[in-house]
Design a protein around this nucleic acid. Structure first.
Lengths: 144, 144
DNA sequence: AGGCAAACGCAACAGCGTTGCATCTTGGCG
DNA sequence: CGCCAAGATGCAACGCTGTTGCGTTTGCCT
């Protein structure tokens, strides 16, 4: 990771006139240190476990802000979020491990071409594509 | 469509020891006659509009039964459902028009190949893939 | 240090989906 | 044709998730 997630987040928040509170820092730490996507409720539970409890509402507001800044990515079909890799805009392609929950983003030129093909075949002009794969990562596979 | 959706549904339900009620028939009609995916609330509203109101609970139970029988397909990231094309098992590929809401399923060999490539690149063994495209269908595009 | 605005917590609310239970309907069978 | 067991329905109540309003606290700039 080139720049730590929390550092990027702090910079982005400050650039918006935002401030850094203990709670917020704790939230960023939780998100950063967790490889697998976490939902609002999980985030809250983890924060409580670490001794820095946060109200449900604040969790939602912070997550919303980070999503808006493009620092978090929302997992398809759920409310779970995870840090966006790199500083590029959100990426909608990911594989999520059903074993350990870790996520990995990817880019595939073949996939892009396939989508173009679909456009030709159906006559739809594609505005957005939602894609997410679920499977077992190499580590979990060898463990089983 | 080879066999009408409602006929297939009726057969499948009866095969399970189920019965055909007015409500259930009305629900099947609504689903069949609507090209775009409908959520539970929309289904209920449409049923009321047609003079055959149905309780929220019954909508959920019927939809659940039809999903279990593989007759309905749930649109990704929402609770909306639409009839599964043909009698084959559910298909997870669809383009949904953001204009009129109509959905169209598709199959792409290039896409399948792209997924295989992702598997090689990431080391994940893919168990499931969720894919849905959003865009404008030809009709809506020319209308705009 | 002081003060303004951001961030927070609390309480209340709204919507969705579920469960338990009593009642009604379907469809088979005598 | 009418009975009746099982399936289906409606109603009420509940739980969970996410949202809004508001008064209070806290960061941060001067």
């Amino acid at each position: 990771m080139p720049v730590r997630f929390s550092s990027r987040a702090e910079a982005a928040l400050r650039g918006r006139g935002g401030r850094m509170t203990r709670s917020r820092r704790a939230l960023l730490d939780v998100i950063e240190s967790h490889p697998r996507p976490l939902g609002p409720r999980e985030l809250q539970r983890e924060l409580r476990r670490r001794g820095t409890p946060m109200d449900r509402v604040s969790v939602y507001r912070n997550v919303a802000a980070l999503l808006e800044l493009g620092l978090l990515h929302r997992v398809l079909g759920s409310t779970a979020v995870r840090p966006c890799a790199g500083s590029e805009p959100r990426c909608h392609h990911a594989v999520v491990c059903t074993g350990c929950g870790s996520a990995r983003e990817f880019h595939s030129r073949t996939l892009e071409r396939a989508l173009a093909g679909v456009r030709r075949a159906t006559g739809f002009s594609i505005q957005e594509h939602l894609l997410e794969l679920r499977g077992l990562c190499a580590a979990c596979r060898s463990r089983a």
